[in-house]
Structure formats: structure tokens, C-alpha cells
Design a protein around this nucleic acid. Structure first.
Lengths: 134, 134
DNA sequence: CAGTATCCTTGCGGATACTG
DNA sequence: CAGTATCCGCAAGGATACTG
């Protein structure tokens, strides 16, 4: 494989990165890495618009508190739009913003790769743990 | 934009995902989202091989404890290889595994996208905070 | 040089109960 | 329905000191 060529391109990209930019990337990643963020972006990407309770049902196991937290975080990051209809009983719908959709799209090849290499991850983990316990 | 088409592809990808697979993805992401992981993978991608102290210098601000922790995590995930020369004074070199290189390559388009949309993120954040404090 | 060991603070994630 | 309020346990991240 021509990893050399690939790494050169990587280097070109990396050289342009300041510490500030690295912070931004980590912020995006770390938010995406939160317990429920991925599933929410996912669910919204598929369904388009969803209400709080609908999301709660799709996300099997999430508590109201964590769902709200996650949505607030995603909203603050500009990935999710919140629309409060100000009715009684309350009706609030969530959907991906353009930014959120963009992120989801960027993520797809990454997910595909992760799934393709799932065995590689498991093997590595197993080997590491064997050596550790031997 | 034809987000519809894109979302359909996304959906196709999503439908194939079990809760188990989602867990794996979140694990990968959450590790990548750790404070220093990204920088380490980055630095190793550029430099090839690096010693503990060299990494410490490149990563500006990391403590020995966190660097070791990060490296152990990455090693356990199979992204980084550790080679201990067993000399005195100690010499240990780290480098990306094939898996690690692959991950870095997958990440590049994502980083590029994040950087291109940095302003979008900042604007969203600003708006959200303005509405919150008003 | 390449780590451990110890202590501390912060924030995530969850359980439960309550409210407009 | 769509949240808040309160409490809790745990792990991440960091500061500091020490070791083979």
C-alpha cells in the first residue's frame, strides 16, 4: 500500500493546523463521542423531524435528562435545530441543521471503515489483554 | 443540494447497524475524542516513529501521566505500536499500526470538512449563547 | 528516559421526583 | 409532553512527587 503518499497528504493537512484548529476538531469529536449524540444525529438524519418523546423511544435506554442534555449540546454546536411550537400541551420538534447533515455525510465513510475493521479492533484488544494478563 | 439522496445512502448504512455496532463506533469515537489521542495519532502519522519524550515535546502541555495513558489506550485499541528496546537508559518508540494509519486516512476528509465549516460552528455557538443570555 | 503513585477537581451519565 | 431539580457514582484530566 502507498501509505507514504497518503501520509504526505495527511502531513500537508496537518501542517495547516494550529493548536486552535486542533481544539475545534477535538471539540467536535468529543461531543460526537458523547453517549447519545451519535444516535440522535443518526435518528434525525433518517427521520428528518422528530419530537422529544419520539427520539426518546428510538434511543432505547436514554433518560429524559440525558436526551435533553444531548439535544442542547447539539443545538449549541449548531448541528440540530429546535422548533418550539409553543402549544399546550407542548410540542417541540428537532431536526438536523445543514451543518448537522454535513457532518453526518462526512461521517459515513468513517463508519463504514470502522465496521469493516471491527475485527481488527477486536483482535488488537484481545492480544493486548492477553499480554497484559500473561 | 441533494441532501435527500445523501440521506438515503446514510439510511442504508444506518439500517445495517445493530446496537452492538453502534457501540463499537462510539467506542472508537470516544477514544478519539479524548484530550490527546488526536494529536498523538497526528504526530505519529507525520513523524513515523517517536519516543515518549519527543511526543511530549510535540504535544505542548501534556503531562507525562496523560501521555502514557493516551498511548496505552491507543495501543490497546490497536492503533499504535509500542517498541521497547529494553536499554538503559530506557528507549521506547511509538508508531502507528496499519489500523492507526487507516483511521488517520479516514479522518482527513472529516478534518478538512470541520475546518471548512469552522465559521459555521462558531456562528452557531455565538447565536445560541446570545439567545441564552438575552 | 519512561514511566508509577497519589491526590484533586470537573463533568458525564444515570436514577428519581417534580412542574408548566 | 417536554422538560427541571437533586442526588449519586464513576472516570477523565491534571498537578505533583517519586523510581528503575
Amino acid at each position: 500500500m502507498d501509505t507514504t503518499e497518503i501520509l504526505k497528504r495527511s502531513q500537508a493537512a496537518c501542517d495547516a493546523m494550529s493548536a486552535d484548529e486542533d481544539g475545534l476538531k477535538r471539540e467536535v469529536l468529543s461531543h460526537a463521542g458523547n453517549r447519545w449524540s451519535l444516535g440522535v444525529v443518526h435518528a434525525l438524519g433518517i427521520a428528518g423531524k422528530l419530537r422529544h418523546a419520539e427520539l426518546g423511544r428510538k434511543m432505547q435506554g436514554v433518560t429524559q435528562r440525558m436526551l435533553t442534555r444531548t439535544l442542547r449540546q447539539l443545538e449549541r454546536d449548531g448541528l440540530v435545530l429546535r422548533h418550539d411550537y409553543r402549544e399546550v400541551p407542548p410540542r417541540v420538534e428537532y431536526q438536523l441543521s445543514a451543518l448537522g447533515t454535513g457532518l453526518l455525510v462526512q461521517m459515513i465513510p468513517l463508519w463504514t471503515w470502522v465496521m469493516e475493521n471491527a475485527d481488527g479492533f477486536r483482535d488488537a484488544r484481545r492480544k493486548y489483554d492477553e499480554n497484559g494478563t500473561s
